[in-house]
Design a protein around this nucleic acid. Sequence first.
DNA 1: ATAGGGTTAG
Length: 586
Amino acid sequence: MTIPESIASFTFSPLSKFKGNSSIISLRNPLSFFGLRTGICLLQTVLAPFHSTSSSNCQSQRNHPRSMFEKITNLDDALILFDEMAQRQPPSSDLKFNQLLQAVTKMKHFSSSIELFKRMNALRIPFNVYTINIVINCCCKLHRTTEGFALLGYGFKHSIKPDVFIFNTLLNGLILEDKAIIAERFFKKLIKEEICDRDVIMYNTMIKGLCKCGINNKAIGLLKLMDERGCKPDVVTYNTIIDSLCKDEMVDDSLKLFKHMVLRKYIRPDVVTYNSLIRGLCNLCRWDEASKMLKEMEDERISPDVWTFNILVDALCKGGHVADAEGVIKLMIQRGKDPDVVTYNSLIDGYCLQGDMSKAKEVFDSLEFRGLIPNIVTYNSLLNGYCKKSRIEEAMHLFQEIVKKGLKPNVTTYSIMLHGLFLIGRCKDAYKLFNKMRSQNVIPDRFTYEIVLEGLCNNNEVDEALYFFHLMGENKLNSCTNVYNILIDGASLMGEAKELFTEMEKRGCLPNDVTYRVILQGFIKKEEQGMIERLLKEMEDKGFSIDASPLEMLLDQIAAKSLDGSLIKLIGKVVPKGVDSLGFKS
DNA sequence: ATAGGGTTAG
């Protein structure tokens, strides 16, 4: 296979010629993705041919909105128009009302849409199956799918027979709310009892649901099944699974599916397909392949969009190459793709990661001038930067600004702040903030709990941590292994640790390598021969290997004769393969 | 000719 010229000019840069191996360079230096010297010459080469035909002419095609409702860009105008339409004699058609409702929905004012529908009913303005679907969709987007189902009944009363659109909307609602089991039952019922026509969107929606709860195989199974049943999968079907596989770091499987789609099924990939794959490859630092993909999409006349550029900017920033990210932003502007707030959020994140808070702040301040409005993610990035540098006062100040700007701090915002407060030992303030979070109805997630528990442990508040942990009760924490690890690590009283260790298995959360490292270290410190033996045996049975740090501690203590040499045999069985220098035979 | 599905934050 030949490497495209434009990539080659970049990949086989002067340095790699000396080494005669491009992959070494790219592994060690992700920068090679964008050229060694300036960082962005690859992108320039790859992306240049399309420069003149960039999508600027797309805009001119949209000079004439299909309906006057597309002109409505803010909620107030929509509400005024509604009043006008409601008073008009003769009254506006249901078509017009639907268009208005849809315009409000497109602006994401879902509750307002529902309110308008209620007013239509109060005013006895007639509605149809489209109206009902728009409103059900609003309920679903607000995670109020139950109300969506209720509207179904309301429609029946008004002789509105639900169609496949409505059932798909509801199915999607269930999946948005993570009710996959109910969704699957609903889906099967629709199909088995032939309640409505089935179409590709119904299958796609169900496939998304399966992917969302991590059962990619089942999703692929359904993909095959729909094909067999004569419902042809389309690019969205494949995109859904391709993206899910990429997110689960199964990029090779994803690429296989991609090839299957293109070469066997003759389905043309689109920009979303490429974006998913490029993101997946970047996340695994497979830069060369990512740039090949970029080249491929250009060859296929699929123009990178703002998402594509944002993915590149984000990957570069996360890899610490902020200067290159800045270069990509210049490039995207050249190509007529205006950077959005997501672009700059990544950049802010990148500067924060480098610890360059003044640059981060500079980018943040530039948003206004660029006509962009910072969102909660923007604030979270900056907050995180300040907190990590223990600049808590500035963080606090920013936190207050969030509320002033009419934004709502979310679970991430609070978690970042809590982390910052614990970092500088302000446990009391952290506790206060935690309570404030609860009073604002922001639900802590597993990260929040981990931050609180770790924060307390690090500040020698192990008893508080344990108390807090038990207060959480049966609260289902997905990563409860992590939580136990933190607590076991924090509990210097080893009796407590032992209890937690037994308790975690009882609660169905399995110890992992971190658990064993942490608990082993504790018992080595306490020189508890018996417990160490038990743990080493258990590790051998479960196939865990010992970490470098407890191993070193163990050997030191054996050498100092504070632990018995008979342990050596057991240790040999849990030393990871490849550690031969220590003279163990496994 | 007015409704439904796929890609980015700690």
